[in-house]
Write a protein that binds this DNA or RNA. Sequence first.
DNA 1: TAACCAGGTTTCCTTGAGGTAACTCGATAG
DNA 2: CTATCGAGTTACCTCAAGGAAACCTGGTTA
Lengths: 116, 116
Amino acid sequence: MPLKVRKNQSPDPPQPCMLTHCMAVISGAWAANVIWSLRAGPRRFNELRTDIPPISAKVLSARLTELEQRGVLSRNVQPTSPPSVEYALTELGGELVPALQAIVEVGHRLKMRDEA
Amino acid sequence: MPLKVRKNQSPDPPQPCMLTHCMAVISGAWAANVIWSLRAGPRRFNELRTDIPPISAKVLSARLTELEQRGVLSRNVQPTSPPSVEYALTELGGELVPALQAIVEVGHRLKMRDEA
DNA sequence: TAACCAGGTTTCCTTGAGGTAACTCGATAG
DNA sequence: CTATCGAGTTACCTCAAGGAAACCTGGTTA
C-alpha cells in the first residue's frame, strides 16, 4: 500500500510561494552583509567596500541598486565635491536587522554545538 | 581633501565575517523553503517534493544532506516497508522559523508599499 | 511476470551570477 | 598638467550550482 501523502499542516494562506518571493529581497551575493553594515547608520560606497573586503565595486553597485529598488535602503547624494553618496536602511529595511540577528545567533550556536 | 572613512559603529565583536558564515546555513536553492515546509512537523522526501513543486530530487537531496550536516534538521528512517524517511527540524533549526517569518513579513510589507 | 512504490543517485548540460581589470567623469589639490 | 578622489560603469571570462532525465534498489502487489 503506498504511503499516503499527508497534508502539510503549515498555515500558508496568502500564497504558497510568499516565502520564495520574500527571501528574494535579501538574495544576491553580499546582500545580507550590506544590510548588516548599515545597521548602525548610513555608509558611503567606499566605506561599504572596506566593510566587506571581498566585494567588488560591480557587485556592490548591483546590490545597492536592487536593494534600493526593493525599498530596503535609500540612496542620498551629498552635494559635496566630489559628491559622496550615503546609503541608509529605510524603516522597513531596518526591520530585517533583527531577523538577520536571529539567524546569526542560531548559526553561532550550531557552530558551538559541532565544535563540541 | 579626501573624505575620511568613518569607522563602522556596528558592534561586530566576535568575527567580522560571522554573518557570512551564519547566512551560509540557509544558503543554497530552496533551503529556506525546506525549513519553512518543516515548520509544522516532520515531512517525508516525496512530501517535500510536492510541497515545493519546482524542486528537483537531486537538489532536494543535496539540500537535505547539507541541512542535516549543519544540524538544522534530522533524518529519521521509519522501519516500514518500503522504508520511509522523515525529516524534521532540530531544536536549533526550529529557531530559524521566527527569523524567516520576520523576513516574510517585511517582504510582504515592501510589496504592499510598492503596489501602492 | 511486470509494474509500482519510496527514496534517492548519476550523468550530462546550460546559464547566469559573480570575479577581474580597465575605464569614465568632474572637481580639486599639488 | 597631471594625479587623485569618490563613485561608479563596461567588457570579458569562468565555473559551479541547478535543472532534466534516466537509472537504481529492495520489497510488494496485481
